[in-house]
C-alpha cells in the first residue's frame, strides 16, 4: 500500500465513520433515556435511503402506507385511552396528528411530480414520511412495556427489527438502490482528491452533532431528556412525562437514522436489509463508549470506519469479521474496568 491509497482509504473510513458516529449518538441517546437497545436504528437508515430512491424514481414510496397504518394503530390506542380517561376532547388532536397528517401527506405526494423535485425537496419528503415512524413506533411497541427489564426491551427491539426488515422487502423489493450525490464537486487538497459527497457527509454530521449539543444544552426539552436519562423517577416527579421523553427520543433517533440513510446512499448501494449491519457498526462504536459516553462513542465510530476501510483493502473477505471482532477487546477492557454487581429485573 502506498501513501496515495492510504489517503483514499482514510477518507472512506472517515466518511463512513461520520455516519456511524451519528448512529452511535442516537443509540446512546435512546438507551440513556428509555433503556431500549435500539436495534431497528439501522432500518431507519435503509428506509430513509430507499424512500429517497423511490421519490427520485417518481414512484409513490410504499413507506407512506406504513405511516398511515402506524397512524391508525396509534390513533386507536391513544383514542381508546383518551375515551377511557373521559378526555374526549383530546380525540381531535389525536386524529389530526395520527390520521390527518399521513392522509394529507399521501394526497400531496400523489399530486406532486416527485421525480422532478429538487434533490433537497426529495430529501425533505423522505424525512416527512420516515421520521414520524419513530415516535409512532415508540407508542406502539415500547410505551406499553416501558418499565420492563432491559432484556425484554432488547428482545422486543429485535422483534421490531425483524418485522421492519420484512416490511422493507415488501415495500422496496430485493433490489438495491443508490441515490444521486449531493454534489459532484472534487477538491484537490495536497496530494489527495476529496469528493463533494465526503464533504457533505462530514459537514452534515458535524452540524447535526453541534445541533444536538445545543438542543441538549440550551432547550427545555433537551434538558428534560437529560434529566430523564439521569434519573427516570426523579424526572417524572418533576413533571416530565416518560411517554413524551420516549417519543421525543425516538423522533430524534429516527431523524438521525433517516438523515444517515440519505447521506450514505450516494456512497454505497442500499438494500432493504443493509440497515442492520450499518446500525450494528454504530453499536460497536456505542459499546466502545459504554452506551453512555457521547464523545467516546463518536471517536469509536471513526475508529470503526477506518478499521473497515483498511480491512476491506487488506482482507476484503474478512472485513465484517474484523469489524465485529473489534468488539471483543473492547468488551475485555470494559470487563476489566467495571466491577459493579447489579441486580437486573
Amino acid at each position: 500500500m502506498d501513501f496515495q491509497i492510504a489517503l483514499i482509504l482514510g477518507q472512506d473510513g472517515i466518511t463512513n465513520g461520520a455516519i456511524y458516529a451519528l448512529l452511535a449518538l442516537a443509540l446512546v441517546l435512546v438507551f440513556a433515556v428509555t433503556r431500549v437497545i435500539f436495534i431497528p436504528q439501522g432500518e431507519f437508515v435503509a428506509y430513509g435511503a430507499l424512500t429517497l430512491a423511490m421519490v427520485g424514481n417518481g414512484v409513490l414510496p410504499a413507506t407512506v402506507w406504513l405511516l398511515l397504518g402506524a397512524g391508525v394503530v396509534v390513533a386507536v390506542l391513544d383514542g381508546m385511552a383518551a375515551l377511557r380517561a373521559g378526555q374526549s376532547k383530546r380525540l381531535i388532536a389525536i386524529m389530526a396528528v395520527n390520521l390527518a397528517y399521513p392522509l394529507a401527506l399521501l394526497g400531496l405526494l400523489k399530486a406532486m411530480p416527485l421525480a422532478e423535485l429538487a434533490l433537497a425537496l426529495q430529501v425533505l419528503v423522505a424525512l416527512l414520511i420516515v421520521v414520524p415512524l419513530g415516535p409512532m413506533m415508540y407508542r406502539i411497541v415500547y410505551q406499553p412495556i416501558a418499565e420492563a427489564p432491559v432484556l425484554v426491551l432488547l428482545i422486543v427491539s429485535v422483534a421490531a427489527h425483524l418485522a421492519m426488515v420484512g416490511l422493507g422487502l415488501l415495500f422496496f423489493g430485493a433490489e438495491g438502490y443508490r441515490t444521486p450525490a449531493f454534489s459532484d464537486a472534487r477538491f484537490e487538497v495536497g496530494p489527495m482528491t476529496v469528493t463533494g459527497q465526503t464533504v457533505w457527509v462530514v459537514m452534515s454530521s458535524l452540524v447535526l452533532i453541534v445541533a444536538l449539543a445545543l438542543f441538549f444544552g440550551r432547550t427545555i426539552y433537551g434538558k428534560a431528556l437529560r434529566a430523564t436519562a439521569i434519573n427516570r423517577n426523579g424526572a417524572r416527579l418533576m413533571g416530565i412525562s416518560p411517554a413524551l421523553a420516549g417519543k421525543l427520543t425516538f423522533f430524534l433517533a429516527a431523524l438521525i437514522g433517516t438523515l444517515s440513510g440519505v447521506l450514505i446512499s450516494p456512497i454505497t448501494t442500499i438494500y432493504y436489509d443493509s440497515g442492520f449491519l450499518i446500525g450494528l457498526k454504530g453499536f460497536v462504536a456505542a459499546i466502545i463508549g459504554g452506551l453512555a459516553s457521547y464523545p467516546i462513542a463518536a471517536g469509536g465510530a471513526i475508529l470503526v470506519g477506518l478499521l473497515e476501510a483498511f480491512s476491506s483493502f487488506w482482507a476484503s473477505a474478512y472485513k465484517e469479521v474484523i469489524v465485529f471482532t473489534l468488539i471483543i477487546p473492547v468488551l475485555v477492557w470494559r470487563s476489566l474496568t467495571s466491577h459493579h454487581m447489579e441486580e437486573e429485573e
Binding site: 428482545i155 422483534a159 418485522a163 421492519m164 420484512g166
Partner: peptide
Amino acid sequence: EIIVFGILMV
C-alpha cells in the same frame, strides 16, 4: 414470515 414473527413476538 419474519414480519408475522416480529409482530407476534411484540
